[in-house]
Every structure is written in C-alpha cells, then in structure tokens.
Amino acid sequence: TGYYDVLGVKPDASDNELKKAYRKMALKFHPDKNPDGAEQFKQISQAYEVLSDEKKRQIYDQ
C-alpha cells in the first residue's frame, strides 16, 4: 500500500489536503482512542512525514 492510499488522498493532493487527511486519520487511529490502531497510526504518521516534506515527496514519487 502506498503512502497516498494510507492517507486516502490522490497523488496530486495539495499540502492542505494532505494535512486535513492526516489529521482525520490520526484522530481515528490514535492509540488513545483506538487501542488496536497503534500500527496503523504509525503508518499514517510515516506517510505524512514523507508526503508533507517536499524533498522526501519528490524522491518518493520517482
């Protein structure tokens, strides 16, 4: 599964769309709200870390 799929956004998503999707998913799977969501929360955080950084995103998109 790709990072875009993890966040539920298209590859041409804007920074604002990425942030909005990340916040929505992070709230849904945060371990405090969803004890079984810890692994998914890590994936969401990693996806956002890469896609929100312009240089990392360019490398990922290659």
Rank of each mutant, 00 (worst) to 15 (best):
Y4R: 00
A21R: 00
D53W: 02
Q43D: 06
A21N: 03
K10Y: 07
I59Q: 13
A21T: 00
A13R: 00
K24H: 09
P11V: 08
F29G: 02
E17H: 04
A26W: 15
P11H: 10
R57F: 04
E39C: 10
K55L: 10
K10N: 10
V9H: 00
L27G: 11
E54C: 14
K56Y: 05
K19W: 13
Q40G: 06
M25V: 05
S52V: 07
Y60D: 03
A21C: 07
S45Y: 10
N16W: 14
A38G: 10
A47W: 06
D36A: 11
K56D: 04
Y3N: 05
M25I: 08
Q58L: 12
K33F: 14
K20W: 07
L7T: 00
L7H: 01
M25R: 04
Q62A: 14
V50Q: 03
Q62K: 10
K55S: 11
Y3C: 14
D32A: 11
Q43L: 15
K55Q: 09
Q46T: 10
S52I: 13
H30D: 11
V9R: 00
S14R: 05
E17F: 00
E54H: 15
S14P: 03
L18R: 00
K55E: 09
A26N: 04
K42D: 07
A26T: 08
S45Q: 15
K20I: 15
Y60V: 05
A13W: 01
S14F: 02
Y60L: 02
V6Y: 03
D53H: 06
A38H: 10
K28G: 07
Y48M: 06
K42L: 11
G2I: 10
F41N: 02
A38I: 11
E54N: 12
G8C: 09
S52K: 08
Y4M: 01
A38P: 03
F41V: 01
K10S: 12
I44N: 01
Q40T: 09
Y4N: 01
N34S: 08
N16P: 06
K56T: 11
D12H: 10
G37Q: 08
V6H: 03
A13Q: 00
G2C: 15
L18N: 00
K55V: 12
E39Q: 08
A13H: 01
Y3T: 00
K20Q: 14
V50W: 07
K55T: 14
A38S: 08
Y60R: 04
F29C: 07
G37A: 13
D36C: 11
Q58D: 09
G8H: 02
V50C: 09
L27H: 10
E49S: 09
Y22D: 05
N34R: 05
D61V: 01
Q46N: 11
P35V: 06
K24L: 12
Q58G: 07
E54A: 15
K19V: 07
K33H: 13
G8W: 03
Y60T: 04
G8D: 06
K56F: 08
Q46A: 11
G2M: 11
